[in-house]
Design a protein around this nucleic acid. Structure first.
Lengths: 336, 336
DNA sequence: ATTTGCTGTGAGAGCGCTCTCTCGATGCCC
DNA sequence: GGGCATCGAGAGAGCGCTCTCACAGCAAAT
């Protein structure tokens, strides 16, 4: 594995800046780092020298003494656990905007057994200052491991097991409530829902929020697993058990799409006969016919906050775990 | 902006390893770096010492002398230019797999004016060893700038202007040919196509490949812009001008989806009356009803190769620009 | 016995920066 | 006018590693 040195692009060091400005290296360093106790005349002399020489600080040298990598990792779940399409793009944009503004590198990793060790090792050797764990698996030992090692970590959702860790969260109940309110405002009389898997926090909370808001003790529901197929199956059951239904809330866009195809096959017009509301505002929401009215989590803002919380935690290692709750919005399209 | 030092996790240095093994720091370094001219007995003594002390090399110190960051950037285009949904995930997975295997950090950035400077600066100060530019804009000055500065760069597509730069490419003509062959094998007689924007290489090539393979001098086509709407508009034109059409190739899945809805509105059954083939195998292909038969670029493999080419280029700065051509495949679903 | 050649190890000079500590200069009070 | 803070700048010691160079040790050739 050959590792030749880079061609000798002449590199300007702080030493040369100092010489050009007629000051010591220490003073030049002060100016570069914005220390305020520098005489104004000297400061501007140094700044001129920096501009003249084209000086750029060497991060490795700095990192060696500050013990900061100015880099954080964004750890994505294995493919299976990654939410639908535009989620990833929004997530990336939200986090990278904030880290970029702070000159911090956002290092991308996808979770697997190797990655877990990699992350821990990089943290340990100071190659990474902190980690954003996106939707870690419920049984994933990494969050706990990192928290216990006192490394800066933030999670993109409520931790599965009780763990004192900084995280962000979308208010699932409030999101579902939005759907319920909307359907009720549409004067729908016979409202049903297809839930997510009820053993998950998300699945549970969306049903709870929906049911509580509707305050209908007879609310009919069927449990799905967020997939298109389970949406179709669920819709079939519901429409047969309750032929008079005129609105359905699906706890994911994918399930809503499955429901939509069943409804169409049975000649029920959407939204005229049946109003449909989804959840996620994923790519399929737009791909549906008619386009789906759906609940949207502010993923980009959540991601940005995640990055902000992490950077704060890195600067203040002893601050207590924080949590930011985000409220979803309803995106009005044509299905309801 | 407080920048406290990390809590003093006791860090083991090479010096300590050397002492524990009873050798010099230089020899310990040799073992760590796999230099082969070390006596076997000494090597294992050092390895034991490494294990005993829990030594991990400090990347900053190493980087300071090797002038290697062991990090490359992945620069994503602004939102507008990002291809459909699962593309991003595949891209990330392909590149991160390769960089991860080499212990190289994959640093994510999204392209904007700031980023351009950021990338150049990071490259210059040695914080980044190279850059993967994903679908840069045709007028983007960054590729040329970096190539001329002799920084290691690779592109995810053929450069817009002639530029000696390493890149990968999907064979668009071959992909379109696949669609043409398939439609012909279906014994379709009156085949039409909705093209991408013909001023782009991709749009042009997909039409050329399709037309050449069909060898139909009267091939009817309409130019679109890859969007759903342009697909619908194009389909409307085509079906009115050629009521006897029985097959359509859309140069993007989104346009195919637009075409599908027009066809459905006009009572043409798909695929019975009209066969439809898309391009991209994006998320909407599955979301379509019926699911779309479409051409798929091996994005993950292309991304992996991109990473490989970049790492090679970093290790061999004087090797000539390379290019790898990938052949798409046809994904058979129900629309054709 | 001396020279030559080879192999493997150690000494030590940096890489470029930060940061503590020292110290000269200045202003202030008694 | 002398003692004492106060302020700002310089000296210099690392941070942890790599890599060149010198050299010890030994085998083979003279």
């Amino acid at each position: 594995m050959p590792t030749p040195r880079r061609a000798p692009l002449k590199r300007v060091t702080l030493e040369e800046v100092a010489r050009a400005a007629g000051v010591s290296r220490a003073t030049a360093s002060r100016v570069v780092n914005g220390v305020t106790t520098v005489d104004e005349a000297i400061r501007s002399a140094v700044q001129r020298a920096i501009a003249d020489t084209g000086y750029v600080p060497n991060p490795a040298a700095r990192s060696l003494v500050t013990r900061r990598a100015e880099a954080v990792a964004l750890v994505l779940p294995e493919r299976a656990r990654l939410p639908g399409d535009p989620f990833l793009g929004r997530l990336l944009r939200g986090t990278s905007r904030v880290t970029g503004d702070h000159g911090v590198h956002l290092v991308l990793m996808t979770m697997d057994a190797n990655t877990r060790d990699q992350v821990a090792a990089d943290l340990h050797r100071g190659r990474l200052d902190g980690v954003i764990l996106v939707h870690p698996g419920e049984r994933d030992p990494l969050p706990r491991r990192l928290v216990e090692s006192r490394f800066p970590v933030v999670l993109s959702a409520r931790p599965a097991e009780p763990l004192a860790v900084t995280h962000v969260e979308a208010d699932q109940r409030a999101g579902a409530a939005l759907a319920a309110d909307h359907l009720r405002s549409l004067r729908r009389r016979r409202i049903v829902t297809i839930t997510g898997p009820l053993h998950t926090a998300v699945g549970h909370d969306r049903l709870a929020g929906f049911r509580d808001t509707l305050a209908d003790p007879d609310l009919a529901w069927v449990e799905g697993d967020f997939s298109r197929e389970s949406g179709a199956v669920g819709m079939t059951h519901l429409v047969e058990a309750h032929p008079d239904l005129d609105a359905v809330f699906a706890a994911s866009d994918l399930m809503a799409q499955g429901a939509l195809s069943v409804l169409r096959a049975r000649g029920r017009a959407v939204p005229a006969d049946v109003a449909v509301v989804g959840f996620d505002d994923s790519g399929v929401a737009l791909a549906c016919d008619p386009p789906l009215t759906t609940v949207r989590e502010p993923v980009e803002e959540m991601a940005a906050e995640l990055a902000r919380l992490l950077l704060h935690h890195i600067d203040h290692p002893d601050s207590p775990p924080a949590r930011t709750l985000f409220t979803p919005t309803l995106v009005h399209r044509h299905s309801a």
